[in-house]
């Protein structure tokens, strides 16, 4: 049935050449026009990513010409002297996303297991899945508002505890005062949790029941089956979901900028404030006037776009490949 359009076309064309009927002629041309219209719309939509990258690349030229690739590993960001280096922001983006992934992955997989395997009554499974998935619907700026006024004060004891007992570890050796890289990581973890949970759930559900039954027949308990059979079989799909979530975390802006403190510089301690590429863009773009400054921000946006594209393209390929072979 795949070539229904061609068939109906041919028949339309046939009839109008045969009879010369005006109505058929009109119908033929309106069909042609309609198809052409949808084609043009699809072309425009598909062209937007090219337009976007070309435009950002072009606008970044003043900074690309001035700093070249060394932009990526220099540390100064001085608006007055027009010297720009992206390393602190790249570092902050990667570290906050990594923290988020470390926290959200086990929790997301746990939610996926609880909501797909038979360890929990099924009438409770979908409400739990819905509650977790609804987090994704909350606007980022509201997560940030909540993070800033509720979560940071609530987790102040945790930060104090980490500093008090683990300050011999370089990652906890600064006095916390609220906003920090760790808080950004936790807020990001909350925001990517729905992605990880939903995709892991799909992957677990796609795994053949035969595998589980085989394990049960050999005397495995429910949890042994999950741990030794189901999870390993789902691992690569879950990994794909985690990559998609990572792509989201890298580009997340509002919630991060509201809890990370927006301090430029690289500090290994997770309890000290930091900055990320999206957070810097959000804070500086509206005030940037110098072409080199705007160019440097565009350059950052370009780097961010390319990194998230790579991560997402890999994830999409991985998830597609796996679901095709599941």
């Amino acid at each position: 049935m795949g070539n229904f359009s061609e068939q109906s076309y041919r028949s339309n064309r046939q009839s109008f050449t045969d009879t010369g009927n005006v109505q058929d002629l009109l119908s033929h041309w309106s069909d042609r026009g309609f198809q052409g219209l949808t084609f043009v719309a699809a072309l425009i939509t598909a062209a937007v990513p090219f337009w976007m990258s070309a435009l950002i690349f072009q606008q970044a030229q003043p900074a690309i010409a001035k700093f070249g690739l060394s932009f990526l590993w220099t540390q100064d960001w001085n608006v007055d002297q027009n010297i720009f280096g992206a390393l602190p922001y790249i570092y902050g983006t990667l570290v906050s996303s990594a923290i988020a992934l470390v926290i959200a992955l086990p929790i997301g997989v746990a939610v996926a297991i609880i909501t797909s395997e038979d360890v929990f009554p099924s009438w409770l499974q979908s409400p739990i899945a819905v509650v977790v998935e609804l987090i994704a619907a909350i606007p980022s700026v509201i997560v940030g508002l909540w993070g800033r006024f509720i979560l940071i004060p609530a987790l102040a004891p945790l930060q104090e505890f980490l500093f008090g007992h683990f300050k011999w570890l370089p990652i906890f050796n600064t006095q916390p005062f609220g906003p920090s890289m760790l808080m950004a990581g936790i807020v990001l973890a909350i925001m990517i949790l729905p992605t990880i949970a939903a995709i892991s759930r799909e992957v677990l559900r796609a795994i053949s029941q035969d595998l589980r039954n085989g394990a049960f027949a050999l005397g495995s308990t429910q949890w042994e089956t999950i741990w030794h059979i189901t999870l390993p079989a789902a691992a690569s799909g879950i990994f794909g979901g985690a990559s998609l979530a990572l792509g989201r975390a890298l580009g997340e802006t509002m919630a991060v900028t509201m809890v990370i403190g927006n301090v430029t510089g690289i500090d290994v301690s997770l309890l000290s404030p930091g900055n990320t590429i999206p957070a810097l863009l959000a804070n500086q773009f509206s005030e940037a006037t110098d072409p080199v400054h705007i160019g440097a921000l565009m350059y950052l946006a370009l780097v961010l776009f390319l990194v998230t594209l790579t991560v997402n393209a890999l994830a999409v390929v991985m998830v597609r490949f796996l679901t095709r072979h599941a």
Partner: peptide, 10 residues
């Protein structure tokens, strides 16, 4: 998949 901030930049 484009980050919304990049859409803003665009």
């Amino acid at each position: 998949a484009a980050p919304s901030i990049v859409v803003g930049v665009f």
